[in-house]
Nucleic acid binder design. Structure first.
Lengths: 234, 234
DNA sequence: CTAAAAAGATGAAATATTCCACCCTTTTGT
DNA sequence: ACAAAAGGGTGGAATATTTCATCTTTTTAG
């Protein structure tokens, strides 16, 4: 594990979406408590933010970068549950009651993250029900994405699932039809729940058919209509 | 849709787990508000409790019975996300902010259900942060099950998935190794994310191998060890 | 009660997917 | 700079899964 760079000043935090949103609900003293108990860290691609099986004492706020949620079944097989980009609250499920992490969260791009002590946040939540509801909503947003992922996985064939992933990355992560994928082919396969060869055959076929242009990490969606159709019939 | 039987008395509610748990957090006036705004309904197998796409104004408390969460993709394909038995809070994701239901919830056995108006509950939540946290935890319990389902679906073959479903039904729904399945073979397939024929071949094979005894709706797990092994290597 | 519809069941052909063997290129560690 | 490891890429054999055709039994609706 490479060394983490710890920032001492609060520059990020004053721009941090979480603090800004919190400011709408909390008083000055509460905001000050929050700011005093916030740690700032940077992660490099590949570094683990939360580790599967650990008990976490902090909530993480992803202010910049891209992370993957992945589950390791203990024997060779690895599974990517989700890919999300900033700004997001990570560890929402652990927000209120402490328990072992069901999966790991690791950086796949350079990430700026603020960590808040769970116990401190819990105290603030107990003082302010409106604030709790707001955070609950944020945490629940992830739930919908998870369900839609599940649906894609459960009732589509591999081509439909890979199409869904490309569309998801384009719409939600990179917000462009042309991007440099931070995932390896193996990771795309772990996200799609299929073999790496199947992903490559699929990408190669779509490149031949001019649906995408794909060369190494560089990926461009040329024909979104057809990709959407593949997703629909998949 | 068959007619719902509406109960006028509060007999169930006074035994209702939800009210009992709420009583630990709320004062007499608040409990009284809750009791005044609670509806009691019975559902028969096949009846829809929440419909996909509807905007729901109520939270449902499943006090007795078994329900399925299912998603209809609009064209022939149907998918079961989960099967749960009482006692459970249904519609937890809708608890705090109103939006369209992502999936339907329907009874697969006779169900006793209490409905609480979302707006009333929201007011109570705003008065009591501790109560909100308790309900949040309850709602989040479902999240873990959903993730474990997802993992099973994503990195196991059909036999592993069907084994997981039998183990899940045995451990969490029927709490016995011998039970009358409320799901049709088609529904088991929709839960496992595979074809109905595949489920039947699998069950037939396991019956030949004395892993299970399966005759129509009656199902008995004879060799849990082997089923667990199939789940592991799946 | 009876006909129709749905569910349970099975085998074989068609298709989708993985696994394996191989090669080349890029990245990583020393 | 160099060797080793990881990633990208491809084709074919082996395997898993679905689709289809067919039949029997059970449930449902009139």
């Amino acid at each position: 594990m490479k060394e983490r760079v710890i920032q001492k000043d609060l520059t990020w935090c004053q721009q941090c979406l979480f603090i800004k949103q919190s400011a709408l609900f909390l008083n000055e003293k509460q905001i000050s408590t929050l700011e005093k108990n916030i740690y700032q860290l940077q992660f490099r691609p590949g570094e683990t933010i939360f580790k599967q099986g650990d008990t976490t004492t902090h909530i993480a706020l992803l202010n910049k970068g891209i992370v993957k949620f992945n589950f390791d079944d203990g024997h060779n097989r690895n599974l990517i549950l989700s890919i999300v980009s900033a700004p997001k609250i990570l560890g929402g499920a652990n927000m209120f009651y402490r328990k072992r992490n069901l999966f790991s969260i690791s950086a796949i791009d350079y990430c700026d993250i603020c960590l808040i002590d769970q116990a401190i946040l819990r105290d603030l939540l107990l003082e302010n029900a409106k604030y709790t509801l707001m955070l609950f909503e944020k945490a629940m947003e992830m739930f919908d994405t998870a369900i839609l992922n599940y649906i894609s996985l459960a009732n589509k064939n591999v081509k439909g699932r890979v199409a869904d992933i490309l569309i998801y990355l384009s719409d939600n992560v990179y917000k462009s039809q042309s991007f440099r994928v931070h995932l390896t082919r193996k990771e795309i396969a772990e996200f799609a729940g299929c073999s790496k060869e199947n992903v490559m055959h699929t990408l190669a076929q779509w490149t031949r058919e001019n649906i995408i242009h794909c060369e190494g990490k560089r990926l461009e969606i040329l024909d979104m209509e057809r990709l959407l159709k593949i997703s629909r019939i998949g």
